[in-house]
């Protein structure tokens, strides 16, 4: 049996890769995909902990995260489409009307 730590480390690496994607990529769609990668990494950690503790609650939380991610992706992509219609671009560096 592979140790839980190994799964946690893998999940951590994937999570950091996702974080870097959020911070470094400029395409809004790529940022979104990186967020999905982070959520996936979290699910992996939850499943590893569920096996460790012999409790199904981790699976339930992962299930809820997947469902919420589906809703979030639908709304997020709709936002991207709406922004693209008005700005003709999804480069997040150009979306600074709020002077951020």
């Amino acid at each position: 049996m592979v140790q839980t730590e190994a799964y946690l480390m893998l999940s951590m690496v994937l999570f950091v890769l996702g974080t870097m994607g959020v911070l470094l990529r400029r395409s809004a769609i790529l940022v979104f995909m990186s967020v999905e990668l982070m959520l996936n990494a979290t699910n992996l950690a939850l499943a590893a902990f569920a096996r460790q503790w012999g409790s199904e609650n981790g699976h339930m939380f992962a299930f809820f995260i997947i469902t919420v991610a589906a809703a979030e992706v639908a709304v997020g992509l709709a936002l991207i489409v709406a922004i693209f219609r008005t700005k003709r671009s999804i480069n997040i560096d150009e979306l600074h009307q709020l002077e951020g």
Binding site: N43, R51, A62, I66, A74, L77
Partner: peptide, 23 residues
């Protein structure tokens, strides 16, 4: 491998299927 067959199936159908097709 983590004894979560249900999550694995959901992962493939919802994530790799529906969400990525949307992307």
């Amino acid at each position: 491998a983590l004894n979560a067959p249900f999550l694995a199936m959901i992962q493939i159908t919802v994530y790799a299927g529906a969400i990525m097709v949307l992307f």
